[in-house]
């Protein structure tokens, strides 16, 4: 929506937009700045900026002197694992619903969406007890299963809206040329569906990485990912502000980068295709 505007107005809106954007971003920026300060400098009053003593010590210390690498690794395994497992189950389902729709397909999709509206606390107790009995409590496998199931409706819906956009005529043409079902999937559908699958994967890694209910309920220490670790990290009287900030910065950095690449798909994915 580019309209002719006077240079003066343009300058004013640019300034206003930058001011608002920096205001919204400021807490993240402040945390990143704090992570590079010494502990004393981090809690100095009045706050230090130019005169602060900068250091990389916090990152080194968090990474080498605690179990941080393990929490980080758990986050990677759990978010990537649950996403891949989810895709393996969801791709055939979404494919079938998009290309061989039956009378009940719409109802089935709505039912899947409705499971997302069920509050997690309502199923928390049986899952918690079952996980303890089955030996899944505080294991990476258990969390991979839980997060996969939590996000499965979103994965299926996203894939479904992407698959729906692949024109059916292409399939018919392929069939006319004598392509069987499997070669149809391998040579026609997969290349066309890959961008959709990639953005579904990206969004679900983000959702799984940031999940902070099941990770807190279903772990103690062994399988805890970063979200559970930071949630229980308490800073006694500001002694560890800089280290807490460094731990936090490393915890959000992979997702900030992934997220910036996927912001377009994010809208579509989280609105179940309703806003494109």
């Amino acid at each position: 929506m580019a309209r002719a505007a006077s240079p003066r107005r343009r300058l004013l809106t640019t300034l206003a937009a930058w001011f608002v954007a920096l205001l919204i971003f400021f807490p993240v920026l402040w945390m990143i700045l704090t992570s590079f300060k010494t502990e004393a400098s981090a809690v100095a009053s009045p706050p230090e900026l130019l005169g602060a003593s900068w250091t990389l010590e916090n990152y080194v210390e968090v990474w080498s002197r605690s179990d941080y690498p393990r929490f980080f690794w758990n986050s990677v395994v759990i978010s990537v694992g649950s996403t891949l497992l989810g895709l393996a189950i969801a791709i055939p389902s979404a494919w079938a619903m998009a290309f061989v729709p039956g009378k009940r397909t719409k109802d089935l999709l709505m039912w899947m969406l409705s499971t997302k509206m069920m509050p997690a606390v309502a199923v928390m107790i049986p899952i918690y007890l079952l996980f303890q009995q089955l030996g899944l409590f505080d294991t990476k496998i258990g969390l991979i299963l839980a997060l996969m199931l939590m996000n499965l409706p979103i994965i299926i819906w996203m894939l479904y809206t992407y698959f729906k956009e692949i024109p059916g005529e292409i399939l018919e043409a392929a069939r006319m040329d004598g392509a069987g079902m499997w070669s149809e999937i391998a040579y026609v559908l997969t290349p066309m569906a890959l961008p959709g699958i990639a953005s579904t994967m990206l969004l679900n890694i983000i959702l799984a990485w940031n999940e902070a209910f099941w990770t807190i309920v279903l772990t103690t220490t062994k399988a805890a990912p970063l979200s559970a670790f930071i949630a229980s990290f308490s800073a006694p009287q500001g002694l560890f502000y800089a280290k807490l900030s460094a731990a936090s910065a490393m915890a959000i950095m992979p997702i900030l980068i992934l997220g910036w690449f996927s912001q377009k798909q994010l809208v579509r994915g989280l609105t179940f295709g309703a806003v494109k």
């Binding site: 937009a17 930058w18 608002v20 954007a21 920096l22 919204i24 971003f25 807490p27 993240v28 402040w30 945390m31 704090t34 983000i206 990485w209 940031n210 902070a212 970063l226 979200s227 559970a228 930071i230 949630a231 990290f233 800073a235 500001g238 502000y241 807490l244 900030s245 936090s248 915890a251 959000i252 997702i255 900030l256 992934l258 997220g259 910036w260 912001q263 994010l266």
Partner: peptide, 23 residues
């Protein structure tokens, strides 16, 4: 601008809460 504005959404809830609580 878009990158700056979207950033908080990618911050995991415990980190968001801890930034506000502590800093």
């Amino acid at each position: 601008l878009r990158i700056l504005v979207i950033a908080p959404f990618f911050v995991m809830p415990p980190v968001a809460a801890s930034i506000w609580e502590n800093l």
